[in-house]
Write a protein that binds this DNA or RNA. Structure first.
Lengths: 241, 241
DNA sequence: CGCGTAGTTGAGTCGCATCAAGTGGAGTGG
DNA sequence: CCACTCCACTTGATGCGACTCAACTACGCG
């Protein structure tokens, strides 16, 4: 909750503000609130009035939806440079999911009214937001199709590849997901159970494709994972005739 | 393809243009192209360059995504007053799905460049678009959760209720979906097979909850369908202790 | 050192996809 | 006007992927 002095250079990195001139950025910085967010903090909760537009300078935030019977779905993981909770402000004014800091984060936010004025004055911001939300819509639609038509193993492979792209860190023997990620989290991303995820990862670990630890996954053979995700023929898994 | 004289009063009904003054509407009308679209016409195809923003004055359009292996997913049905294909224009420039006219329609469209200028000049349009796309994102996320966590029967019930809300017409003995809808279509909305949908509808028909026909469904007891969708206890289906 | 949380692994079950016929009504052509 | 042909739909039989139930293990933290 410690307020920090916002840095214009940092805000320039946000997709939401790309293409704006220095004067506009200065205005945006003036109206921004920056703060540290401790690991485990709930930034907003499903059903809350959406009073703030958020963006993440650094860290990792989980956006998750809860069903009537307590079932959880991980909607997405937000990384540095991404906005979140902003679509809700302009679409009904209620956050449709929870936002939870997975690690210590640095966040920035604007009030709904301020962001509205900024967008009116600088349509480019609204256009950027439309771009971002449109891409997320496409991504979620793609996941919807995967969930409808693919077996669990392929969905888990897709999920890990997506995570590697968004939150992968190159390490000696592959690509590591750079935040604590449990089997349960993966299950909630792919619509399965932690048991099934555990079995699948164990299988892959036996084949040297991934390496798992407590709340931690490293991909050692990304190409093999792509082969599984795309359902390509591959060694050890002969096509039935 | 017959061009028609666009009518300002008609465009006022589009959510995308709500809150605009008469001058702005006049400008929008001048730059619009209106046309009749025959049933069965493909308005755009997945992978095409997104050159046009569309809206539907009247009729019904199916937005469907195809996977690499030909698997189909119905993303949504568009009705009169709704825009479609617009998010794609501002998010990558490629349509992520097919748009197919389910009945004879009247559509209107703008070029990407024209709509971009309109939004720059009238930020309210961009805000409206953000609102609409944000709501669709929420809806798709909700479907994603349903697909992850609910059994087929509940998902079909949810899909029918959603359709009834968007495309329902009150008739003597219930609510009828007002466009041709096959079992296959329902299956592609809910991530199942037409066989399973057929079995479920037959079961419901036996209980008097729905009435089915060829590419046609009438809901006779909406409350019963809600009970199924929400997994409430109900007569004939005792809770196991 | 003990407790809690995360993960592993086995056995059993079942929901639903898959395979496989068949029915009936709408549209078409002779 | 009737026969033919689709196409949407129905319904039965079968199999299996993955969920459920149930221990058990191991790591990290206080």
């Amino acid at each position: 909750m410690t307020p920090l002095s916002p840095d214009p250079a940092v805000l320039r990195g946000l997709r939401l503000f790309s293409g704006l001139d220095a004067a506009a950025l200065a205005e945006i910085v003036r109206s921004a609130q920056t703060r540290r967010i401790e690991k485990g903090t709930t930034i907003f909760s499903q059903g809350d009035r959406a009073a703030l537009c958020h963006a993440l300078i650094d860290g990792r935030v989980k956006i998750a939806q809860t069903g009537a019977d307590g079932q959880q779905l991980v909607v997405r993981y937000i990384g540095g440079g991404e906005m979140f909770g902003t679509a809700a402000v302009f679409s009904g004014g209620i956050y449709p999911a929870d936002a939870l800091a997975m690690v210590d984060c640095v966040g920035v936010h604007w009030t709904a009214a301020t962001m509205g004025e900024l967008m009116e004055r600088h349509p480019r911001i609204a256009l950027n937001a439309l771009d971002i939300v449109g891409r997320r819509l496409q991504e979620v639609q793609t996941r919807l199709r995967e969930l409808s038509t693919e077996r669990v193993e392929r969905r888990v492979a897709h999920a890990l590849l997506r995570l590697a792209r968004q939150a992968g860190r190159r390490v000696g023997n592959g690509v590591e997901i750079d935040f604590p990620l449990s089997r349960q989290d993966i299950a909630e991303m792919t619509g399965t159970t932690l048991h099934t995820v555990s079995r699948i990862l164990s299988g892959w670990e036996g084949q040297g494709i991934v390496e798992g630890g407590r709340q931690q996954v490293t991909i050692r053979q990304p190409h093999a994972l792509v082969a599984i995700a795309e359902d390509l023929p591959r060694p050890g898994k002969p096509e039935e005739k």
